[in-house]
Simulated scan of single mutants.
Amino acid sequence: MEQLAKTVKPFLEYDLLVEKLTSRGMILRDSLRAQRKLTQIGYYRLSGYWHPALKYKFIQPKEIIKYDEFQTGTTFDSIFDFYLFDKKIRLELLCAIERIEIYLRTIVAHELGRIHPQAHFDKKNFSRFSTSIEKDDRFSEFDLWHRKHQQLLEDSREDSIRSHIDNEKPIPIWVACEAWNFGTLSKLYSMLSGANQQMICDRLGIDKRQVLDNWLINLNGIRNRCAHHSRVCNRSNIRTIMTPKNGYFNLIALGSSESNKLYGLVVVIWFLLSKIGPSSDWINRMADLLDDKPEVIGLTFKSMGLPETGFPRKLFPKTIRTEPDIPVFADLIESANNQNLQILDMLREKKHDSEVDHELLKRTVESLLELAMKLEEL
């Protein structure tokens, strides 16, 4: 057995890991619960969530030193709330990216299929750079993509693909695309000729083909982070978001810091989702989720690319919270008061009567409880 590096960290059991957190200044309300969470999630997975809460010192404008000591007031409960918050964001992102992936895959396959059912085999549809073999390389990007593509087809269990393979029929692109993943789609688009890229962008209302390439890379990256349960809410994007020049993006006017964080991705995702399903309420859910972020040392709106006041709802009118309908609210109160009076009258009349209609009383109380729940929702 090879000798391990001298700097390798020693193995620690869960109780010792909890002691380690305590010794560094983290407040643990329930050490047994903390130990249980470490067994379920893992010390180093959670460490990404408490890392922003460590003490630090600036040594240069953009360079800091982190210490192995937590800032005052850091609690394990707040760190775990951060973890759950990030999980909710991942689920919302995956929900949106699923629709976008299928939508873009369908558009690409349809537009190229119009050229030829197997347009993805014709090098004329791709850039010269992607089809040429660079010095010291054995294969071009085009060749490597097709090798991966062929493997995806062979591994696929989609009935439509298996039917073509079993019957030795050529597979058209609109069938083959069912085997693609987001990375396959992103790479294919990046290799297309400029004319074919612009043809796809025109379908999406994007003025520059490089913008969609940038989006696909970022969406693929965030999808992979979500799929592997990695932290997403306060990390930098794979690449700084590029934006087209149109009314939506001109109004939002993303700066460099916003374009490099989660908020920039949310802006892009909503642009695409709005084209797929104009009635989608995804942006409402995301806005509410971001505004309700937990109070955690080191987790700020700014760290997610948002303004310090939270989600900028004025830029997204659909997310503006409205007050409940006053007439409806008043009607519910009046109805509740009337039923209250009915109960009081009944009890007053029969306070000396042993034959009180208990069934009627029960139904009335249940009705009042139902009204109370409606009022609470408002």
Rank of each mutant, 00 (worst) to 15 (best):
187 K>H: 10
268 V>K: 04
294 P>V: 05
36 R>K: 15
16 L>N: 07
34 A>Q: 08
5 A>L: 11
185 L>Y: 08
203 R>M: 05
213 D>N: 13
280 S>E: 04
342 Q>E: 11
187 K>C: 03
23 S>G: 05
377 E>S: 13
122 D>Q: 05
263 Y>V: 10
329 F>T: 11
373 M>L: 15
16 L>T: 01
249 F>W: 12
25 G>H: 06
120 H>N: 06
126 F>Y: 12
186 S>W: 02
240 T>I: 15
125 N>C: 06
365 V>N: 06
80 F>R: 04
203 R>D: 03
17 L>P: 02
371 L>P: 09
299 L>A: 05
42 G>A: 02
248 Y>N: 10
159 D>A: 14
60 Q>T: 12
26 M>C: 09
240 T>E: 07
311 F>G: 02
345 D>H: 10
113 G>P: 05
276 I>M: 11
77 D>G: 05
180 W>D: 06
246 N>A: 07
153 L>E: 12
31 S>R: 15
292 D>N: 12
192 L>E: 04
241 I>Y: 09
215 W>K: 06
85 F>L: 05
253 A>H: 10
253 A>V: 11
376 E>H: 13
124 K>E: 14
336 A>F: 10
181 N>I: 15
97 I>S: 13
71 Q>V: 07
3 Q>Y: 12
98 E>Y: 12
94 L>V: 12
131 T>R: 08
69 E>M: 02
49 Y>T: 00
364 T>D: 11
185 L>E: 07
84 L>K: 08
351 K>N: 08
221 G>V: 00
126 F>A: 01
258 E>P: 03
279 S>H: 07
305 G>P: 01
222 I>N: 13
209 R>N: 13
33 R>V: 10
216 L>F: 01
287 A>L: 11
2 E>S: 15
187 K>N: 08
51 H>C: 13
310 G>F: 04
157 R>V: 04
211 V>R: 05
225 R>N: 12
87 K>M: 08
181 N>P: 09
81 D>G: 01
123 K>L: 08
198 Q>W: 02
54 L>S: 00
362 K>E: 13
237 N>M: 13
25 G>T: 09
336 A>I: 10
314 K>E: 14
343 I>W: 06
145 W>M: 04
299 L>T: 02
97 I>A: 09
179 A>N: 04
233 C>R: 04
190 S>V: 01
301 F>K: 00
335 S>A: 13
140 S>E: 02
321 R>K: 14
30 D>R: 09
130 S>T: 02
141 E>Y: 10
118 Q>W: 04
76 F>C: 01
333 I>Q: 15
224 N>M: 03
139 F>G: 01
118 Q>F: 06
86 D>C: 05
355 E>H: 15
375 L>H: 06
178 E>K: 08
261 K>F: 07
